[in-house]
Design a protein around this nucleic acid. Structure first.
Lengths: 127, 127
DNA sequence: CAGGATCCGATCCGATACTG
DNA sequence: CAGTATCGGATCGGATCCTG
C-alpha cells in the first residue's frame, strides 16, 4: 500500500499514467480482460472508439507487453488480441479503481451538486 | 475484484478516468495523501506543475469532495488543502496501481525495447 | 477483416502578466 | 501568499478515404 514513499520526484505513478492516461487504453484493457477479441469485435465491444484509436491503443499495449497480437492467415484475415499475464495483473489493479468508482459515484455527484450550488449564486452576483 | 461485469456500456471506470486521466490530478492526490499542504507547498512538492494547473486541479478535487480547502485569515493568506476520507480511499487505490508500476517497470521497458528492435529494421527496409 | 494515412477541430496545458 | 485571466503551442482524437 504505502501511500507515502513518494516526494522525491514522483513514484512510479507517472509511468502508469502515461500509459493509461489516455481516453481508451483502460477501456480496451478491461474489455480484453473479459476475453480475447479480434479487431472488429474489440471495436464493437468498446463503444465509441474509432478505427484509428483502436489501432493506436492496441499497438501500444502490444509494445508494452500488456497484450499479444496473433495473426491468423485466413481469408478474410483475423487478428486476435489477448492480454498477457502482465496485462491481466494490470487489469486486476484497474478493477480495484473501478470498484472504488462505483462505490463513491453517488457521493461525488452529491459533492459536485453542493459545490455548484454554492458557486452558481456568486457567478450571478458578480454580474 | 470482478474483472468482468463490464461490457454493457462501460463499468465505472470512465468516471474515474475522467477525473484522473489528466496530467496532474493523480500526482496531487498522492502528494496530499502524505500530508495536507498549502498552495505553494503543494506546487513545490508536485514538481513541474504550473500555477494554473494547480488551481484547476485542486479546484476539481474540492468540487468532487476528494479534498477540502481551508482559508486562514492570516497575512499573508494561507490556504490548506487536505484530502477527505474519500480522497484518502482513492489514494489507496491509486497506490496499488503505483505498486504495480514499480513492479513491472523493467518488464515493460524490456518489452518496448524488444518491440522497437523488431520494428525499426522494417522501417529501414521500407525506404 | 485489419489497418495505414491524412486532415482538422477540440482540448489540454505551460508561460506570462496581473490582482487582492 | 493565493490565486485569476489571457494567449498560443502541442497533443489528442474523430472522420474519412484508401490498401492488402
Amino acid at each position: 500500500m504505502t501511500i507515502e514513499a513518494c516526494g522525491h520526484e514522483d513514484c512510479g505513478i507517472r509511468d502508469v499514467l502515461d500509459r493509461l492516461g489516455d481516453r481508451w487504453s483502460v477501456l480496451v484493457i478491461v474489455t480484453l480482460a473479459q476475453e480475447p477479441r479480434r479487431f472488429r469485435e474489440l471495436q464493437r465491444a468498446v463503444t465509441g472508439i474509432s478505427t484509428r484509436m483502436l489501432t493506436v491503443t492496441t499497438r501500444r499495449l502490444v509494445r508494452d507487453g500488456l497484450a499479444t497480437r496473433t495473426v491468423y492467415a485466413t481469408v478474410p484475415p483475423q487478428v486476435e488480441y489477448r492480454l498477457t499475464d502482465m496485462g491481466l495483473s494490470l487489469a486486476a489493479a484497474i478493477a480495484a479503481l473501478s470498484d472504488w468508482s462505483r462505490t463513491h459515484k453517488s457521493a461525488i455527484s452529491d459533492a459536485r451538486a453542493a459545490f455548484d450550488a454554492a458557486e452558481a449564486p456568486r457567478q450571478a452576483l458578480a454580474r
